[in-house]
Simulated assay, not measured.
Amino acid sequence: MSALVRRLDFLGVPSQDVDRSRAFYRDVLGLRPDPTAAYEQWAGDTCFAIWEPEAQGMPFVAQQGNPWPLGVDDVAATRAQLEAAGVVFFGDTIDTGVCHMAFFADPDGNQLMLHHRYAPPAGGDPAA
């Protein structure tokens, strides 16, 4: 059977204030603006599309319980830079033995994680 799903097209970022969210993702996290879509920004090949569920007649619910992992080169340095910009992290940075992780949220409460794998998975693909 061939794969039914080919890729993740985008992440929908629920917001109650799209301008505030756009400023956070672009100015604080440094995501690349989309030249043709005001509320879309990019991290590598992943589009973060900000939208207001309530404007579509849906309830706003922040994405929680499964933080989106944002790949960075150095979790400690990136965390320090974000903390200097006012971002509050949940707890200490975690070292799992193969990666570092630090958890925080955007202004709407959508949970995010800084992530850096520093060792290949056991028996796995080192490029993973």
Rank of each mutant, 00 (worst) to 15 (best):
M1F: 09
M1I: 06
M1C: 09
S2E: 09
A3P: 06
A3G: 11
R6M: 10
L8Q: 11
L8A: 14
D9S: 15
F10T: 03
F10M: 08
F10P: 01
L11A: 14
V13Q: 04
V13T: 05
P14I: 01
S15A: 15
S15V: 12
Q16E: 05
D19Y: 05
R20Y: 01
R22A: 07
R22W: 01
A23T: 05
F24P: 06
F24E: 00
Y25M: 03
Y25T: 03
D27A: 11
D27L: 06
V28I: 15
L29H: 02
L29E: 00
L29R: 06
L29V: 02
G30K: 11
P33C: 03
P33S: 09
D34Q: 06
P35Q: 03
T36V: 08
A38T: 10
Y39I: 00
E40A: 12
E40N: 12
W42Y: 11
A43C: 10
D45I: 08
T46E: 00
T46V: 15
C47F: 00
C47A: 10
F48K: 07
A49M: 12
I50K: 09
E52K: 13
P53Y: 11
E54I: 02
A55S: 15
A55I: 05
A55F: 04
G57H: 09
G57P: 08
P59V: 05
P59C: 07
P59K: 09
A62L: 13
A62K: 14
Q63V: 10
Q63W: 10
Q64A: 13
G65I: 13
G65M: 11
G65Q: 12
N66S: 13
P67T: 11
P67L: 08
L70I: 15
G71C: 03
V72S: 10
A76V: 09
A76G: 11
A76W: 06
A76N: 10
R79P: 09
A80W: 02
Q81I: 01
L82D: 01
E83Y: 01
A84E: 04
G86I: 12
V87A: 05
V88S: 14
V88L: 12
F89L: 01
F89G: 03
F90N: 12
G91F: 07
D92R: 15
T93M: 14
T93Q: 14
T93F: 03
T93N: 02
I94C: 07
D95H: 10
G97Y: 08
V98N: 14
H100N: 08
A102Q: 13
A102V: 12
F103S: 00
F104L: 07
A105C: 12
P107I: 00
P107T: 00
D108G: 01
Q111T: 12
Q111V: 04
L112R: 12
M113H: 04
M113Q: 15
L114Q: 04
L114S: 04
L114M: 05
R117G: 03
R117T: 02
R117Q: 05
Y118H: 09
P120R: 07
P121T: 08
A122K: 15
G123K: 15
G123A: 12
G124W: 09
G124R: 13
D125Y: 09
A127E: 11
A127V: 04
A128W: 13
A128R: 15
